[in-house]
């Protein structure tokens, strides 16, 4: 499935993601990592800890609705993957980000921005393995 090259929209989106990361550090002193925020939501350190995680998750889910209000349509979600494979992939992602202590937002944005050697090696590792997995699924098995 072809997708359109969108350098402008993707840069604007990236700048907003970065802005959210900076604002979260400025206000609550936290890393904007989806994995950490989600995992802590299910086992919060305190009631106060639960509240800000619930609020930021609620805000994230509101994001596409704000997009709808601005653009008149929901953001595209095209899924070229079967439902069973989504479940398999989701479960594997959950295991990986827990052992790896982060994902594309925590390591990829915040960790790389801090020039953390730990995050840079994590990002290099998952980018290579994602690329290999896509190649195998599309061109070895699927080809």
């Amino acid at each position: 499935m072809e997708t359109e090259f969108t350098p402008l929209a993707s840069t604007i989106g990236g700048v907003l993601i970065g802005t959210a990361s900076v604002l979260l550090m400025l206000t609550l002193g936290r890393i904007m990592g989806a994995t950490g925020i989600l995992a802590g939501f299910f086992s919060p350190a305190s009631r106060e800890d639960f509240y800000w995680r619930a609020a930021i998750l609620a805000g994230m889910v509101t994001g596409p609705l704000v997009y709808f209000a601005l653009m008149g349509q929901m953001p595209a979600v095209e899924v070229p993957v079967s439902k069973p494979m989504l479940l398999v992939g989701g479960f594997i992602v959950g295991i990986g980000v827990t052992f790896g202590s982060g994902c594309t937002s925590g390591h990829g944005v915040c960790g790389m921005a801090r020039l953390s050697p730990r995050s840079i090696s994590a990002v290099a590792t998952f980018m290579v393995f994602t690329g290999l997995t896509v190649f195998v699924l599309r061109h070895v098995i699927g080809g």
């Binding site: 604007i12 989106g13 990236g14 700048v15 907003l16 993601i17 970065g18 802005t19 959210a20 990361s21 604002l23 979260l24 206000t27 904007m32 609020a55 930021i56 998750l57 609620a58 805000g59 994230m60 889910v61 509101t62 994001g63 596409p64 704000v66 997009y67």
Partner: peptide, 8 residues
């Protein structure tokens, strides 16, 4: 902040 992230 969640909205800014989600919109991004």
């Amino acid at each position: 902040i969640g909205i800014v992230f989600g919109l991004g």
